[in-house]
């Protein structure tokens, strides 16, 4: 039997989920999962290139955080594992898939690729491919909100920024430097650590002298929470409080979501180090299956309704693939476009 860090328990009965919200959460998680499964298929069929990092298993975190904010209005900052964060933030599946195909219709015009998804329109600040480098950028977006409100007198500036990153990043200086600044200036930001236990092949416990990441918040006078990252309602619950704090000007929150990636680090990862027992332990906690059960048990949806959603989402993803395949390549004459802002 493997020794896993105990997951904090959340009383689902306290969740108070409406049918509409429940369906929205379910929809978003299924979109993330279906999209990623399709990515794997496309990668192996040679339609997608480079490094592709899939999010399977972690959907409750993206959905639980972003869908509890105001997608499209609040800011989202991600890593190289960014497809599903972009989808939760509202970037259309067509634009994400086209980007992965390197097409002109992609959200980054085919210039970015899997690890560099951007959409100013959806306030997606980016996929940042190097460890930790998105955290300062997200902190800057949060600073901007405070600046607009306090220095420019814009009372409507109450946006919150969510910065996503992994357990490996929590040992990088930018994490500590930004926690310090965000707490110092009470910035409206939520730092979300998706602790999936593995930084490629480096087990979290082998890299980290004090493995409970949420406890590091205390050093900065900031609230820190650990949450079961396989339970969308648990994530939603802690994020609600973090969003409230941020909008009220009470400052940042650190959330450590304990989660797991069902696939290797990237599609190029042979995934030889993680044990079968460990994988089985976490696969049994599949956040989508768990939330489906919640929905049906609480009479928020029937199995048929959920199956109908699955089917709709499959159609959305199939349409995204077709859109990507049909889209034009970038024009070679535009090779140097976007280096500088147009005058």
């Amino acid at each position: 039997m493997i020794q896993e860090r105990p997951l904090p328990t959340f009383k689902a009965s306290t969740a108070e989920v409406s049918k509409e919200e429940g369906l929205r959460l379910y929809n978003d998680m299924v979109l993330g999962r279906t999209f990623e499964d399709k990515c794997a298929e496309m990668y192996y069929r040679g339609k997608m290139f480079g490094f592709v990092h899939l999010y399977n298993g972690q959907e409750a975190v993206s959905t639980g955080v972003i869908q509890t904010m105001r997608p499209g209005e609040d800011y989202v900052c991600s890593t190289y594992r960014d497809h599903v964060h972009a989808l939760s933030a509202g970037v259309p599946a067509r634009e994400v898939m086209a980007e992965l195909f390197g097409k002109e219709t992609g959200c980054s015009k085919g210039r970015g690729g899997s690890m560099h998804l951007f959409s100013a329109k959806h306030r997606m600040l980016g996929g940042f491919a190097f460890i930790g480098e998105g955290i300062p950028v997200a902190t800057g977006a949060a600073f901007q909100t405070k600046y607009r409100r306090e220095s420019m007198g814009d009372e409507s500036a109450d946006q919150v920024t969510a910065a996503f990153f992994g357990d490996g990043t929590s040992n990088n200086g930018q994490f500590f430097e930004c926690l310090n600044m965000a707490a110092l200036w009470k910035l409206p930001i939520i730092y979300v650590v998706e602790n999936n236990k593995w930084a490629i092949g480096m087990a979290h416990d082998r890299a980290t002298s004090s493995p409970k990441i949420y406890k590091k918040a205390e050093a900065f006078g900031m609230p820190g929470f650990e949450v079961d990252g396989m339970d969308v309602l648990a994530v939603r619950s802690v994020v609600k409080e973090a969003v409230r704090r941020a909008r009220a000007g009470e400052g940042p929150t650190l959330i450590e979501a304990l989660t797991y990636r069902f696939r290797g680090h990237s599609l190029a990862d042979p995934d030889e180090l993680r044990s079968k027992e460990e994988k089985e332990f976490w696969l049994a906690k599949d956040p989508i299956k768990r939330f489906s059960a919640y929905m049906t048990e609480h009479n928020l949806a029937t199995n048929d309704e959920l199956k109908a959603i699955d089917k709709e989402i499959q159609a959305v993803v199939d349409d995204a693939v077709q859109f990507g395949l049909d889209s034009p390549e970038p024009n070679p004459a535009d090779l140097r476009k976007y280096i500088f802002a147009e005058e």
């Binding site: 955290i135 300062p136 902190t139 800057g140 977006a141 901007q144 405070k146 930018q174 600044m181």
Partner: peptide, 28 residues
């Protein structure tokens, strides 16, 4: 102009530079 417009930062060059980038991306 006040402390927010003349922001004294901690000694954290990579992070405050990244912060400025995030602020610039969002309109400052």
């Amino acid at each position: 102009y006040g402390d927010l417009r003349l922001l004294d930062t901690p000694i954290a060059e990579n992070s405050f530079t990244g912060m400025a980038i995030g602020a610039a991306m969002t309109g400052l």
